[in-house]
């Protein structure tokens, strides 16, 4: 490799830098930089192993197994864990997601509208619902709505309330994702669509939104994971045995059995869904990163 190429090629420069012996500075501690790095690394490993051993020695393993990983208690949770608790959690999540998706899309379009009142309404909604704890929305919907509108019942009872509460919260976040996605579509796309005679709404529907939604699939999938967990807030509305979901089922069984295993099992069931979803999100993000 000649010198001229090396000067312009960063990799070649790095090679030269690392392979050319540099005049070592006299180390103050008497150790070379490489030796010092080794000592530092050895200390870090030693601390890690020490803590690990300490935890293993101090923990009361039989008690832990008995109380947290009790096979008999865990077995008692089946099949209700899947047939009722997980099923309800999934119903709450999907219903909330559908509402959030639709409302979020409408809010994003309002936010980008040239009609000022639309923009203001969307902005106020997004700020409020992003700023409030989801718990407050649940309580307001569950207990406030029946007082404000006596006799009014949301379709699906608890399911309706939960779906609406989750949807209202999710819509605020999803609206911001949609807005970012719509704005990420190059301006020329709208111009090309308009130059073909499409009306603004048609161009948005046929040309801009299909591209925008592709862009925001990763953040929208993340939102699905968040909703999946937030569905546990349904406990505030007082669920019955039939409408119970993972967290409530886990905590009820824990109290019933005076044993913490059900919480671990419920938690593991959440992870059963969220970890693969998280993996999918990372895959999608990586794929978009490659396309750019």
């Amino acid at each position: 490799m000649d010198g001229r190429r090396a000067r312009h090629d960063p990799v070649a420069r790095l090679l030269i830098m690392t392979t050319t012996p540099t005049t070592a500075e006299p180390a103050k501690s008497g150790l070379s930089p490489r030796q010092r790095r080794r000592v530092s690394l050895a200390i870090q490993y030693a601390v890690f192993v020490l803590v690990l051993v300490a935890v293993i020695l101090i923990a009361d393993w039989p008690k832990i197994f008995e109380n947290f990983l009790n096979g008999k208690v865990a077995a008692g949770m089946f099949p209700t864990l899947f047939t009722v608790a997980l099923k309800n959690t999934l119903i709450f999540t999907v219903a909330g997601y559908v509402i959030g998706f639709a409302l979020g899309l409408v809010l994003a379009l309002m936010r980008l509208s040239s009609v000022v009142p639309y923009r203001v309404v969307a902005l106020v909604y997004i700020e409020i619902f992003r700023g409030l704890p989801a718990l407050i929305i649940f309580l307001l919907l569950g207990f406030g709505l029946p007082i404000a509108f006596p006799g009014f019942k949301l379709p699906g009872d608890v399911y309706g309330t939960v779906a609406l509460a989750l949807g209202l919260v999710a819509a605020a976040y999803m609206a911001e994702s949609f807005r970012a996605g719509i704005q990420a579509v190059p301006k020329g796309q709208m111009e090309a669509a308009r130059s073909l005679g499409m009306k603004p709404g048609r161009a948005m529907l046929s040309i801009i939104l299909p591209q925008a939604i592709r862009i925001v699939i990763p953040p929208l999938t993340n939102e699905l994971i968040l909703l999946f967990k937030d569905s546990s807030l349904v406990f505030t509305l007082g669920v019955t045995a039939a409408t119970t979901e993972l967290t409530k089922f886990g905590s009820d069984t824990t109290i019933d059995q005076a044993n913490s295993t059900p919480l671990i099992v419920a938690g593991a069931t959440y992870l059963l869904i969220t970890i693969p979803l998280g993996f999918v999100v990372r895959r999608l993000e990586a794929r978009q990163g490659r396309k750019r």
């Binding site: 190059p186 796309q189 090309a192 499409m198 046929s206 040309i207 591209q211």
Partner: peptide, 30 residues
């Protein structure tokens, strides 16, 4: 605009549609 075709410097093809669909969509929708 239906009677005025426009060709842009940056092409501005619709990337989510195939070449055929690019040429079809305005015919169908407009």
């Amino acid at each position: 605009r239906r009677h005025v075709g426009m060709v842009f410097q940056q092409f501005n093809l619709f990337p989510h549609l195939t070449a055929l669909q690019n040429v079809m969509i305005a015919q169908q929708r407009v």
